[in-house]
Write a protein that binds this DNA or RNA. Structure first.
Length: 435
RNA sequence: GCCGCGUUGGUCAAUCGGUUAAGACGCAUCCCUUUCACGGAUGAAUGACGGGUUCGAUUCCCGUACGCGGUACCA
């Protein structure tokens, strides 16, 4: 991050900001210093743990039994600070107040402060927790709308109180707690692990965890178009009510309406995600696709030196590609002859007459006037008729020679696209492999 | 346990009190195509449960069940 109207943005560079506000809260009686060690906290949690209350909190019920600037005499806790005893700053949650606020998605939401614990605001190392940081940052950066995941809803009252205690209530952003994306199977919110387990990406782009060096493949590298990814995400938890599903970013911006955002989480469906990508590939122009595909082809060892030719190829095969990476297998034969054409599927019904046909086809093609799909087809069919062989029985072998497999666009289109000499050479090669 | 938020086919979902309960993904069958796809047609499959309110509830209210989230010096 560089520059910007409210820089710096990196939390570590804003460290001193936070302490100042945390201390102001202490001075105003809304927060306090707490000296409890991790061991002491652990001890408290095990001591007060019961069947009815499996997770006791550091709250108004317990804070006076802990070591903090509320429970200790002033001289004592001041001495502790002088000594350099590590401490945190915790918010002092009111005992029994109801916090109400309006969420753009959920409407009126209310919580009782008696349920919330005295959250740590400033950590021992002087860094803020998320609770302090969001409020201070959002205020300083003049944030108008706070959009975040539903998992933050329970801590919203802490944030509301902070806005109030810091005297910024009039500048508070509007809140929106978005529904979560859930695992396709089982329970819980979608995590990176689920992607690894089920074989799909969860991040937009490749990501290597700097701590563990663990690599995770992104949607982009998996072969997703950014347009499709955004489109897919937008439809997970929102729709415009008309049944339309494929949206451009511009259409999304025009159609989006908070009132139609769902409250419940949605399970992620990789099949549907791929469908979106397929739709986008089909509706994208070859020019749009070309730069991305050149990289993919290059990585697969396919050299592309004619952009116009590559664009023709893209238009011919794009409807059968779900992921950008599918273009490798679907178009390789346009750039290089199949290494060793597998003629097996044609071998069963092969005959001398067919060999003769393909031998005769070569000079016929060579003498053909214009090299187009229609002219090749006419030539091919006339020759087949003259030889008394059904065209259908010759098309599969022809495809196998040109493509190397039972897939791809119409055979005569392929023949017309690749070079005339190349086409004839592939016939020769195919015949050899049948011999 | 407690607090909060949810609950329409396998999945994503429309409906804002009256419908044969849309549509999409996936699945199945068929057509097109003597390849693979695209495309077209058809089909199977849905309102968690129990009470209210109402002439009438998928829709409004209350319970129950279930799911999710939170309950950290993580975000």
């Amino acid at each position: 991050f560089k520059g910007g109207p409210h820089a710096p943005y990196r939390q570590s560079e804003r460290k001193e900001n936070y302490r100042q506000y945390a201390e102001k809260l202490v001075a105003d009686g809304h927060a306090y210093f707490a000296f409890d060690t991790p061991e002491e906290l652990e001890e408290m949690r095990t001591r007060y743990k019961t069947a009815e209350n499996p997770s006791p909190q550091y709250d108004h019920r317990l804070r006076m039994q802990m070591r903090n600037s509320l429970s200790l005499p002033e001289s004592e806790w001041r001495a502790l600070i002088e000594n350099g005893t590590p401490y945190v700053i915790r918010i002092r949650m009111p005992e029994n107040e109801t916090i109400r606020f309006t969420d753009m998605i959920r409407g009126e939401v209310s919580f009782s402060t008696s349920m919330s614990d005295d959250k740590v605001l400033l950590k021992k190392d002087g860094m803020p927790t998320y609770h302090l940081a969001v409020v201070v940052d959002d205020y300083l950066m003049k944030i108008t709308h706070a959009f975040r995941g539903e998992e933050w809803l329970p801590s919203a009252p802490v944030h509301l109180l902070l806005w109030r205690y810091l005297g910024w209530e009039n500048d508070m952003p509007q809140w929106a707690h978005l529904p979560l994306i859930l695992k396709p199977d089982g329970n819980g919110k979608l995590s990176k692990r689920d992607g690894e387990r089920l074989g799909f990406p969860v991040f937009a782009m490749n990501w290597t965890d700097p701590r563990t060096n663990e690599f995770t493949q992104g949607f982009r590298e998996r072969g997703f178009l950014p347009e499709a990814f955004v489109n897919m995400l937008a439809m997970l938890g929102w729709n415009d009510g008309t049944g339309k599903e494929v949206f451009t970013m511009e259409e999304l911006i025009a159609a989006f309406d908070m009132s139609r955002v769902h409250k419940g989480g949605a399970k992620f469906d990789f099949e549907k995600a791929k469908w979106f990508n397929h739709e986008w590939i089909k509706q994208s122009t070859a020019t749009r696709l070309l730069p991305d595909l050149k990289k993919i082809w290059e990585a697969a060892g396919i050299s592309v030196n004619d952009d116009r030719y590559a664009e023709r190829v893209i238009d011919m095969v794009k409807e059968r590609c779900t992921l950008l990476t599918d273009f490798v297998d679907q178009s390789r034969f346009f750039f290089e002859a199949p290494a060793a054409p597998d003629m097996e599927p044609a071998r069963g019904k092969w005959s001398e007459a067919k060999t003769a046909f393909f031998n005769e086809l070569q000079p016929a093609l060579r003498e053909l006037g214009e090299w187009t799909s229609a002219s090749i087809e006419t030539c091919f069919k006339e020759l087949a008729a003259a030889r008394g062989i059904k065209v259908g029985e010759l098309q599969l072998p022809f495809r196998l020679m040109l493509v190397g497999g039972k897939f791809g666009p119409a055979v005569f289109d392929i023949a017309a696209t690749i070079d005339r000499e190349d086409c004839i050479n592939r016939i020769i090669k195919g015949l050899k492999s049948l011999a």
